[in-house]
Design a protein around this nucleic acid. Structure first.
Length: 642
RNA sequence: GGCGGUGUAGCUCAGUUGGUUAGAGCAACGGAAUCAUAAUCCGUGGGUCCGGGGUUCAAGUCCCUGCACCGCUACCA
C-alpha cells in the first residue's frame, strides 16, 4: 500500500462543548496535528479538522443555569478549546462547530438524503417510531436496562433515569449491518489497532438495533427538515461534522477533493467506537457517500493508575503542561509516554524523566557538545568537509534508513514510531561523535578531520530538525536558526542529505536547547482539585433531599448468576425493606448479617435482575477496595443521619 | 456466566510464515571517556518467554488445559 500518494484528511472527534479541554482532548488533537504536519512535510496535501459538539439538552440546561443564552454559552466554551489548541501549536485547517449555520445546513441535507433513501431490502431508511425507555437527562439519551448500574442508575451520572416515551425518527441500521460488517472485515473501512477490529465485529454478533435520529423535546439543535418539531439527535448531528466542514452542504468541489479524493482518517477514543465504526458508515451508505478509510482508536490514560476525573481532582489541563514544559515538549511528551493505540498510565515523575532522557540528554546535549567544539578551531562557524571515510558513509546510510522508518511509521499512522525514528538518529549521532573523538582531534591539531566530523554531526542534527519538525515546530525552528539554515524545512527529503548547511555560517548557540530539569518527586502539574470542588458545590437544601438512615442487616443472600449482586433484607426502625447492592465481591453474606449500615431511604425503587431494591447502601471504594459505612458507636436502626 | 484479548528482563513493550547464543527503550550496576546540559559511549540481565500437558527433528511462536489480569457484554451468539 502506498497511502502517501494521495491527499490526507484527518479528523479528531468534535469535543463536547460543556467539557473543559484537558490532556485527554489534547492527546487526540496533538496526535492528529502531528500526523497532519508529517504528511505536509512529505509533500502530501493534508486537511486537519477538529471542532466542538455544541448541541444537546445539557447545553441548554447549563446555559439556563448560567443565565446565558445557549449561543453565549457555546461561544464562550468553544473558545476554551480554541485557546488550548493555540497554546499547543495546533494547526488545524478548520474548526467546525455543530452550531455553525454551515454545519446545520449540511446536517439537514444529510438527513434529507437519509430520509429519501431506500435500504438494500427495499424499505425506507428512516421511519417514524415510538421510543419508550429510560432516559438519562445527563447523558441526554435513552439507556437500556443493561446500561444501568446495579443500583439502577446511569453509570456516568449516577442518577436514576426517567421513564419516557416520545415520537422519534429512526434510522434503519439493521438493513445496513451486512454491508458495514463486510466493509470492516475486508478493511475497506480499516479499524486500527487491529484488536479493535475484533471488538467491533463482536458488536455485530451481539446484535444491533435501529437507532433514533431525532428528539421531540429538544430545542437546541438542528431541525429535522421534514418534521421541524423534531431536532436531530446526537449522532446524526455530530458525525456529519466530518463532511460539513469540507463542503458537503455547500461546496461540492472541496468535498470531492477531501472526502472522495483523500485518505480519510478519523482519530477517536474508544468510547465512540461503535458510532464511528458502525453507525457512521451505515449512514454514509444510505446517503450514497463513501465510508471513511480508517478509524484509529487511541488509548486512554490514567494518572497514577487512576482514571482522570473531575471528582478525583486529578485532571491535568493542557495549559498546565504547556506552562511547565512549553508547547513543543508537551506535544512530544503527550504522545510518547506510552504506545499510541493502547491505554497507558502517566506517573507523576514520568514526564520529567522522559524529557531528560530523550530531549535533554540525547538530543539537546548533542547539539551543545558539537556546537561547542566548533568554537575554537572554526570560530563557531560551520566547518568544511574534508575527505569522507567509511564511518561517515555508514552514518549517512543509517540516517537514511531512519528517515525511511519515519515515513513508514507515519503512513501506518503511528506517531510514536516517527518519534523513535528521530531519536534513533540522535543516538546514532552520539555514537558516531564518541567514536570519532573530535575533542582529541582538536588537541592533536587534526583540523581537517575535526571539521569533517563536526560538519557531519551538525548535518545530522539538521536532519533531526527536519524529522522532529512536526512534533516540535518551534524548537526545531530555533535549532535550525542555531544552525543558520532555513527556519522551516520544506520536505522530509532534506533529512536524507548530509550537505545542506552553509559552510562558514555562524552557529549561534547561547543556551541549551532542552535544558535539563530537576526531577521533582511530586510537584508535577498541579491538579485542579479546588476548581472541581467549586464546580460540584451543592446547597444544603440539595443535601437535605437525600434521606439517610441507619439500617440493620437481617438476612443476606447472593443473587444467583451474578458476580456482584447481593440481596439484603434490612430493618430501618420498625420498617423492613429489601435492597440489592453490588458488593458481593467484597463481602460474604455472613460478614453482613447484623451489621449496622447507612442507607439512602428515599431513592426511587429499582429492579436489578428482576429483584426489587428499595434503597441504596453507602460504601466507600478506591480502586478495587470497598468498605461499608458503619457506625462509630452504636445507635438503633432507623436513626437519621444529617 | 458469555465472547475477545493479554501474560516475554525491575518498568514499558518488540518478537515476522515454528529453526542457530530471546531483543529494544527506560531504570540499576560496572567500566571508558571528559567535547557537553553530572550529559555521552561501552559492557553487564542463572529472564522457569504465567503453570501443566501435547504435536514436531525443532515452540515464546501451533494444539489442549489450568491460573491471573484487562476489555466488551450480560439469562446470552
Amino acid at each position: 500500500m502506498n497511502e502517501l500518494s494521495r491527499a490526507f484528511y484527518i479528523t479528531t472527534p468534535i469535543y463536547y462543548v460543556n467539557d473543559r479541554p484537558h490532556i485527554g482532548h489534547g492527546y487526540s488533537t496533538v496526535a492528529a496535528d502531528v500526523l497532519a504536519r508529517y504528511h505536509k512535510l512529505f509533500g502530501v496535501e493534508s486537511f486537519f479538522l477538529t471542532g466542538t459538539d455544541e448541541h444537546s439538552f445539557n447545553v441548554q440546561k447549563a446555559a439556563e443555569k448560567a443565565g446565558k443564552t445557549p449561543r453565549e454559552l457555546v461561544d464562550a466554551n468553544a473558545q476554551f478549546f480554541k485557546d488550548a489548541w493555540k497554546k499547543l501549536k495546533i494547526e488545524n485547517n478548520y474548526f467546525v462547530r455543530t452550531t455553525d449555520e454551515r454545519h446545520k445546513e449540511a446536517v439537514q441535507r444529510f438527513i434529507t438524503k437519509l430520509h429519501e433513501a431506500t435500504t438494500p431490502d427495499g424499505k425506507p431508511a428512516v421511519y417514524a417510531g415510538e421510543y419508550k425507555g429510560l432516559y438519562c437527562v445527563g447523558c441526554e439519551k435513552f439507556l437500556t436496562e443493561k446500561d444501568l448500574t446495579e443500583e439502577g442508575l446511569c453509570p456516568d451520572h449516577l442518577v436514576e433515569p426517567e421513564s419516557l416515551s416520545e415520537k422519534n425518527y429512526f434510522f434503519r441500521l439493521t438493513s445496513y449491518l451486512d454491508q458495514v460488517k463486510e466493509l470492516i472485515e475486508t478493511d475497506k473501512v480499516r479499524i486500527l489497532p487491529k484488536e479493535r477490529k475484533n471488538e467491533v465485529l463482536g458488536l455485530f454478533k451481539q446484535g444491533l438495533e435501529d437507532f433514533s435520529i431525532s428528539r421531540e423535546k429538544a430545542t437546541w439543535g438542528v431541525s429535522i427538515p421534514f418534521d421541524p418539531d423534531q431536532k436531530a439527535y446526537v449522532w446524526v448531528d455530530a458525525l456529519p461534522n466530518y463532511i460539513s466542514a469540507i463542503g458537503y452542504g455547500d461546496d461540492r468541489d472541496t468535498f470531492e477533493k477531501w472526502w472522495n479524493g483523500a485518505r480519510v482518517v478519523h482519530i477517536i477514543g474508544k468510547d465512540i467506537l461503535k458510532f464511528h465504526a458502525i453507525f457512521w458508515p451505515a449512514m454514509l451508505l444510505a446517503a450514497e457517500e463513501k465510508p471513511p478509510d480508517t478509524i484509529y482508536i487511541h488509548g486512554y490514560f490514567t494518572v497514577d493508575g487512576q482514571k482522570m476525573s473531575k471528582s478525583l481532582g486529578n485532571v491535568i489541563s493542557n495549559e498546565e503542561l504547556v506552562e511547565r514544559f512549553g508547547a513543543d515538549v508537551s506535544r512530544y511528551l503527550m504522545l510518547n509516554m506510552f504506545p499510541f493505540g493502547t491505554d497507558g498510565d502517566i506517573r507523576i515523575d514520568g514526564f520529567c524523566r522522559k524529557y531528560n532522557a530523550d530531549l535533554a540528554n540525547d538530543f539537546g546535549n548533542l547539539v551543545s557538545r558539537s556546537a561547542k567544539l566548533t568554537k575554537k578551531p572554526f570560530g563557531g562557524k560551520v566547518p568544511p568537509f574534508g575527505e569522507l571515510t567509511g564511518d561517515e558513509k555508514a552514518l549517512h546510510e543509517s540516517i537514511k534508513s531512519s528517515v525511511r522508518k519515519c515515513r513508514e511509521q507515519v503512513e501506518s499512522l503511528n506517531p510514536n514510531g516517527a518519534a523513535d525514528s528521530f531519536m534513533d538518529v540522535c543516538r546514532k549521532l552520539n555514537r558516531y561523535f564518541d567514536s570519532q573523538k573530535p575533542w582529541a582531534l582538536a588537541k592533536q591539531g587534526k583540523t581537517d578531520r575535526l571539521g569533517t566530523v563536526l560538519r557531519t554531526t551538525l548535518e545530522g542534527i539538521r536532519c533531526v530538525s527536519v524529522m522532529a519538525y512536526p512534533y516540535m515546530p518551534n524548537k526545531c525552528r530555533e535549532l535550525r536558526e542555531i544552525l543558520a539554515t532555513d527556519p522551516v524545512p520544506k520536505s522530509l527529503d532534506e533529512a536524507e542529505s548530509l550537505e545542506l548547511l552553509i559552510e562558514g555560517s555562524e552557529i549561534k548557540l547561547d543556551s541549551p536547547l532542552f535544558p535539563r530539569l530537576e526531577e521533582p518527586k511530586t510537584d508535577m502539574p498541579e491538579t485542579d482539585a479546588k476548581e472541581s470542588e467549586v464546580d460540584n458545590l451543592i446547597s444544603i437544601d440539595d443535601f437535605a433531599r437525600v434521606q439517610l438512615k441507619i439500617a440493620e442487616v437481617l438476612e443476606v443472600e447472593k443473587v444467583p448468576r451474578t458476580d456482584k449482586l447481593i440481596k439484603l433484607q434490612i430493618r430501618i426502625g420498625e420498617e423492613k425493606r429489601q435492597i440489592v447492592a453490588g458488593i458481593a465481591e467484597h463481602y460474604t453474606p455472613d460478614q453482613l448479617i447484623g451489621k449496622k449500615i447507612v442507607v439512602v431511604t428515599n431513592l426511587q425503587p429499582a429492579k436489578l435482575r428482576g429483584i426489587e431494591s428499595n434503597g441504596m447502601l453507602l460504601a466507600a471504594s478506591e480502586g478495587d477496595k470497598l468498605a461499608l459505612l458503619t457506625l462509630d458507636s452504636d445507635l438503633p436502626s432507623g436513626a437519621t443521619i444529617s
